[in-house]
């Protein structure tokens, strides 16, 4: 059986249209990580996750399915709308959700440490629509972006602190091209926390190889910031040949278009990185999940996102 590309694209985009994100998820659950930190709701300046980190467990669960479909397992009939409905066939791992919640808490804590005050939109926070932009569905993307902007206006938001390359790029570089009068200042959290000492007394002396996300390195020029942060934590950052502006893609962006090819690209990236260290650092939830998936066969490897080291 051939890969049901058309059906997959329809499902993902319909989900975004109906439920606001590529998966049919109860959005109120996605902001639970913030309760403990008692972040206020709304405000001039807010932390904006764009839900990308929160999607990790769902992407992980779904990619197993997509891979099986890519290999010709399963029939089109069985992968109808139930496929991307986690309450049905997709089993999301509780440990993955806990892991992501810790990542988000760490990110927020590291910003709090700088003394910067910010709010959060909790269940009203929306996905950026990046998938629609990436596959070229610009009209649908524009409508989604307008809804996101309306929500931000409703709360009187002026500045947003973004935490991943995709949401940062979309909201800083792409929204202004799609929304008339878009007037939101976007700053990435790495820029904020790299200017402050992480204040960790105990410095690690471990080596770690860095995987720059394409959009940070080639789209947003966020290159030195993570290195400063890691250096401050005491890490010895190893630069692969394909580093900085020459960084190599993790394959993530075509995960839903062509899972097998996406996976092979991730494996190729892993093989470039592990020449330097078995400890691989990511700076993006998509890179994290994709490289993690490609490292399963190699138990010595550990894939760490920067959000697991800070806070």
């Amino acid at each position: 059986m051939s890969y049901p590309l058309q059906e997959i694209i329809s499902l993902l985009t319909n989900n975004i249209r109906k439920y606001g994100s590529p998966f049919k998820i109860d959005h109120s659950k996605l902001s639970r990580w913030a309760y403990e930190l008692k972040i206020k709701k709304g405000g001039d300046t807010i932390l904006y996750t764009g839900l990308l980190y929160q999607l990790i467990p769902y992407i992980k669960a779904t990619s197993t399915w997509l891979n099986r479909i890519g290999r010709g397992v399963g029939g089109v009939l069985r992968i109808t709308s139930r496929l991307l409905d986690p309450s049905k066939l997709i089993r999301v791992n509780r440990a993955d959700i806990d892991n992501v919640n810790r990542m988000l808490k760490n990110i927020a804590s590291s910003i709090l440490k700088t003394g910067l005050e910010f709010g959060y939109l909790y269940e009203d926070e929306m996905y950026s629509g990046v998938l629609l932009y990436d596959i070229g569905m610009d009209e649908l993307f524009r409508r989604h972006a307008e809804k996101v902007y309306e929500k931000l206006m409703e709360y009187g938001v002026k500045n947003i602190i973004t935490i991943d390359p995709h949401t940062t790029y979309i909201m800083a570089e792409v929204y202004p091209q799609f929304i008339d009068g878009y007037n939101i200042e976007v700053i990435n959290y790495l820029s904020i926390i790299s200017e402050h000492k992480q204040g960790n007394e105990q410095k690690t002396n471990e080596e770690i190889v860095i995987h720059d996300p394409c959009l940070y390195a080639r789209g947003l020029n966020i290159i030195e910031e993570p290195r400063l942060i890691l250096g401050d934590l005491g890490y010895i950052v190893l630069e692969p040949r394909e580093s900085r502006e020459a960084t190599y893609c993790c394959g993530g962006p075509i995960e839903s278009i062509y899972p097998k090819l996406s996976h092979e690209i991730a494996k190729r990236r892993i093989s470039q990185l592990k020449k330097y260290s078995y400890k691989i650092l990511t700076l993006c939830p998509i890179c994290y999940i994709n490289l993690l998936g490609a490292s399963e066969e190699d138990r010595e490897l550990s894939i760490l996102d920067i959000s697991q080291l800070i806070g």
Binding site: G136, C214, R218, C249, G252, I265
Partner: peptide, 13 residues
Amino acid sequence: LALLCLNCMRCTQ
């Protein structure tokens, strides 16, 4: 064919 592009910008670079 374009659908398979990662939009990673390496080509442009």
